[in-house]
C-alpha cells in the first residue's frame, strides 16, 4: 500500500552488472523509505553505490532486483519511454559537473525541460523567470555556460532542475566541483529551496560538512545500507 507521505520506498533493491565476465554487486538488499518534503544526504566512500542508488531513484538506471516506488510510481515496470515521461514530470536532477548545454544561454538551458510540457511561450517565460530568480541568477540569463563561473553554472543547473516543479530534486555531488565559498552558497540555496518551498531533496555527497545541511543521513558502504539517521528535524 502506497503511503502518500513516503516519496521513495525500496525493498530488497539490488543492482549488479557484469564487468570482464565477473558480476559486480553495486547495491545489495537496500531497504529504504524516504519521506516527502525531506532533505536526505546519501553518504559513503567512493564505490559505495551512492550515485547508482540516486540513478535508480531518478529512473535513469534500472535495478537488477527488488522493488522501487518513487512518487507513487513503481519504476521497475516502466518502459524506457514511460520512464522518460515520468522523469520529465517528477524528477529534477543536478549533476556534479552541471552539464549545461554549451550552445544554449542560461535562460534557454532552464527553458529546455519545459518543451516537454504542454505550455505556451508566456507560461514558459514565467516559469523560467521564477526559476532563475529562485537561484539568484536572473542577471545572467543571457550568458552562455562558458561565460559563467562554476557556482553560477550550478545555479543555472539547479534552476533547470526545479523549473518543472518536480516532486523530487536529486543532486549528485552538487558542490563537488566548486570552491568552498561557491559550495556554501549552493548548499544555502538547496537549503532554502527545501525550507521555503518544501522541496524534497536527495543529495549524494562524501563531504560531511555538506551533509550537515540535510535532515537525514543515509550511509552506504560496499553497496549496503549501513546507517540511516536523522541529523535534525
Amino acid at each position: 500500500m502506497h503511503n502518500p507521505d513516503t516519496i521513495i520506498a525500496c525493498h530488497n533493491l539490488e543492482k549488479h552488472y557484469e564487468r570482464g565476465g565477473e558480476i559486480v554487486h553495486v547495491l545489495e538488499s537496500i531497504d529504504l523509505s524516504l519521506a516527502r518534503g525531506g532533505f536526505v544526504a546519501l553518504m559513503g566512500p567512493s564505490g559505495s553505490g551512492k550515485t547508482t542508488l540516486l540513478n535508480l531513484f531518478a529512473g535513469i538506471d534500472r535495478p537488477t532486483a527488488g522493488s522501487l516506488m518513487v512518487d507513487g510510481q513503481d519504476l521497475t515496470h516502466l518502459s524506457r519511454s514511460q520512464l522518460a515521461q515520468w522523469r520529465a514530470v517528477s524528477i529534477g536532477y543536478v549533476f556534479q559537473l552541471y552539464h549545461l548545454v554549451p550552445v544554449l544561454t542560461a535562460y534557454e538551458n532552464v527553458e529546455l525541460p519545459l518543451f516537454l510540457h504542454d505550455m505556451s511561450r508566456s507560461e514558459r517565460h514565467l516559469r523560467v523567470s521564477e526559476a532563475l530568480d529562485a537561484v539568484g541568477i536572473t542577471d545572467r540569463h543571457a550568458h552562455y555556460p562558458r561565460q559563467l563561473s562554476g557556482g553560477q553554472e550550478q545555479r543555472v543547473a539547479i534552476a533547470r532542475a526545479i523549473v518543472t516543479r518536480p516532486a523530487i530534486l536529486l543532486a549528485d555531488e552538487p558542490t563537488g566541483d566548486l570552491d568552498r565559498t561557491a559550495a556554501a552558497s549552493i548548499m544555502e540555496l538547496l537549503g532554502r529551496l527545501h525550507s521555503e518551498k518544501g522541496q524534497t531533496i536527495v543529495m549524494v555527497t562524501h563531504d560531511p560538512a555538506t551533509a550537515t545541511h540535510a535532515q537525514r543521513l543515509v550511509q552506504l558502504d560496499k553497496g549496503r545500507l549501513v546507517e540511516s539517521s536523522m541529523v535534525r528535524s
Binding site: A58, S81, I91, Y93, L112, P113
Partner: peptide
C-alpha cells in the same frame, strides 16, 4: 554522448 544522456535525464525520449 554525455549531452544526450543529460537530455534523456531531463525527460527527452529516444524519439526526441
Amino acid at each position: 554522448e554525455m549531452e544526450i544522456s543529460v537530455l534523456q535525464t531531463l525527460g527527452f525520449r529516444g524519439m526526441h
